[in-house]
Each structure stands twice: as structure tokens, then as C-alpha cells.
Design a protein around this nucleic acid. Structure first.
Lengths: 190, 190
DNA sequence: TTGTTTTCTTGTCATTTGGCAAGTGATTCA
DNA sequence: TGAATCACTTGCCAAATGACAAGAAAACAA
């Protein structure tokens, strides 16, 4: 039943007893579409492993309009790392884009386990490595790829998004206007 | 003398004996402009703390042309995290953009200390957090800011770069052509 | 169901940036 | 020193995208 949690912590050095201690620290919660998990300006006190549904992160630009910074899908960890680990007010808002089922762990529990469970810090290092790599790829793609290609890649990698999220939010994630995205879609469908 | 190394590991949980063990694992090396520290396709076996000079990271796009992905300046850690920590061939090349003085630590030494030195994993988590945040900022900037503003921010944050690096390399880092950057510079100077 | 709001599409025109090519200096190196 | 290469600038035109506005379609609420 907590398999989704277990598989989120998959790592060679993290097995048996140790892994189960981690898993046990997570608590199930269901949220409805629109529910704000972590609001802007607040210090994040937990992170979430997403079992089902879709979580969106966004910031506000200098004009006050929303820019989507991330979409979290099932199996991923919905988190605001800099707020959580630097204990600083979050610049991002985490909100449920659809009804979702999550497994929550508090920062305090995490912190305890990070020091006590062998292999956990190793797992964390790998998780960060992968996140950093993914984010570098994203920066690179914004530079090298056309908007059309960025959209197509999103569609193939996270098709769930297209079904459930308004075009405007997808567009801001891709770095274009909703008008442009609408035209791109038209172009593609021909 | 190794102050630059010490200050790179500044963290509340990393002091005294423990810190000195880390510092002792670093070895000084001098490199000339053009020296490749980590070539594409090879598994990174170390990382570097930069005392003076300038290190550039780049990848090749689908057409084979260089895209600068990062500039490392004095005090920063020149590293290819995914190659180092996943033991995978590097997609990036690390090259000295000017003559530089570095403090090198091997992956094996790092790995040993990561497990033995209390507080080191905590430091690492914070370092990753900051890196990830910076990279998110960069993605966001590529979306929201005009090329002119991206250039101006680079100039104020890392002015060393402009003096020492050819325009083409700066342009690819900013996601524009050298032609455009040349025009932007002209525009600014008026 | 009706009315209201949100979402999406489309048209027109402006702005940003790219592609290509020519030309000028500067640097390198044999 | 001369020839080659590299770095930068500039002009011209094309392509991609944005801004604004109107209207159609869909979702939502009373």
C-alpha cells in the first residue's frame, strides 16, 4: 500500500529495516484540486510523495502574473528544496492541479532520519544530483530548442498534464504566451 | 593559504578537526588557459575549488556547436555533479578559460570523508540546495527576462567573465547568437 | 436552465532574435 | 613579415514570438 513511498526511496544502500523506518514516517493525505500545499512566503514544513494526481508549482513575475515552474506527477517528490532546507520563506506556491493522494513527511522527521538512517544521505545526494541534472537540461532546452519542440517533449514525457491543466499554465511553463501555444497546437495537428 | 578551501566548506556543523580533515584532502594545482579538466565522455574522478582564474563548462548541441553551460569564478566549486556522483560519462567539458589555481579532491577521498566526517553530508545538502535554486533561477530568467537584462545581470554578477571570454561563448551561455549580443552591447553603450 | 466566467482560438501588427554575408581589426604562428 | 585565423561589428531580410483585441466554446454557478 505504501509501495509508492518505498519506490521513491529506491537506492542500493537503503533497504530492509532502514527503508521501513523511512516509509513509516510518511502519512497519507488526500487533497482536492485547488488546495494549496505550500503557499508563497511561508517556510515549508514538509514535502510530499505523490501517489496519484498532479501538483503544480508557480511563482509570480515582476508584473504579478503566474509562471509555472514545475509539474509533479505520480511517483515524484513535490517539494520546495530551498525553503525546506534553508528554512526560508518559499518563493514558490505548491498547489494541487487535480485531486491528489500524497504521502507527507515533516521536516523534523526527515531531519532525524537523515542523521540516523544509514544510506539516507547517500540517497539524498543522488536525488539532488538527478534534480540538478534535470534542471540543467531544462535551462539548456530553453536555449537550444524551439517552443514547438519543448511542447512536444512535455507532451510525451508528462501527457497527464495536457489533459488536466489549462493552456495558460502550460504556456508559462514553456516560456511562451498562451496565444503562441494555441498556434503551436494548431500547427502540430496539421 | 588554504583559506579559499576552508571558506568553500563554511557551515555551522563543519568546524575544527573535521573541517581540517576535509581541507587536507585537497591538493593544489595550477593550469594554463585552455587546459581541459574534465573532457566530455569521461567519468569525472574529482572536483575543484577555484582559488583564482575562470573555468568554463560547455556541451555540444545537435549541430555540434558549443553551448556554454556555466562559468565558475574564484571561490566556487568547479564540478560535473551527475558524472561524479552517478559515475557516468560527462556530457559537459570543463576547461580553463584563463590560467587558474585550483584545489582538487578525488572522488574516492570525497566519498570516504562524506561518510566519516560529521556534518559533511549536511553541508552537501545545503550546497545542492543552493545549486538547485540557482539553476531554477536561471531557467526562470531564460523565460521571463529579455536577452539584454540577462546580459546586464551577468556583467554585474560575474564581471570577470566579460574581460576574459570571447563574446561567442558568453552569447551561447545567454541563449543568443554572438551577432545579437554584439548589437545588445552597442545598444547598452548608448 | 440561464447567465457568467474561464478557456481557447484567431486576426492584425509590432518586437525580438536569427541567419547570412561582408568588412575591419587583432592575434597568432611559421 | 606575411598569411591565416579569430573576434567583433554591421547591414539586410526572414522567422519566431508577443501584445492586444474580438469572438467562439466550454465550464461553472445560481
Amino acid at each position: 500500500m505504501k509501495d509508492i513511498v518505498r519506490s521513491a526511496y529506491r537506492h542500493p544502500l537503503l533497504v530492509g529495516e532502514d527503508l521501513e523506518r523511512l516509509v513509516a514516517a510518511h502519512h497519507r493525505c488526500e487533497v482536492e484540486k485547488g488546495k494549496v500545499l505550500i503557499p508563497e512566503g511561508q517556510v515549508a514544513g514538509e514535502y510530499y510523495i505523490l501517489q496519484s494526481g498532479l501538483i503544480r508549482a508557480f511563482v509570480h513575475d515582476y508584473e504579478g502574473s503566474e509562471i509555472t515552474t514545475e509539474f509533479f506527477v505520480a511517483g515524484e517528490i513535490a517539494i520546495v528544496p530551498d525553503s525546506l532546507f534553508q528554512r526560508s520563506p518559499s518563493k514558490e506556491t505548491l498547489v494541487a492541479a487535480t485531486n491528489s493522494v500524497l504521502w507527507k513527511i515533516s521536516f523534523d522527521d526527515f531531519q532525524l532520519l537523515f542523521h540516523q538512517v544509514p544510506g539516507f544521505s547517500e540517497w539524498g545526494r543522488l536525488w539532488f544530483t538527478q534534480q540538478l541534472f534535470a534542471m540543467k537540461q531544462r535551462s539548456l532546452e530553453m536555449i537550444t530548442a524551439k517552443a514547438t519542440d519543448r511542447y512536444l517533449r512535455l507532451v510525451t514525457e508528462k501527457p497527464q498534464i495536457i489533459q488536466h491543466v489549462p493552456l495558460k499554465q502550460i504556456a508559462s511553463f514553456l516560456g511562451i504566451t498562451d496565444t503562441s501555444l494555441s498556434r503551436i497546437r494548431k500547427e502540430i495537428s496539421q
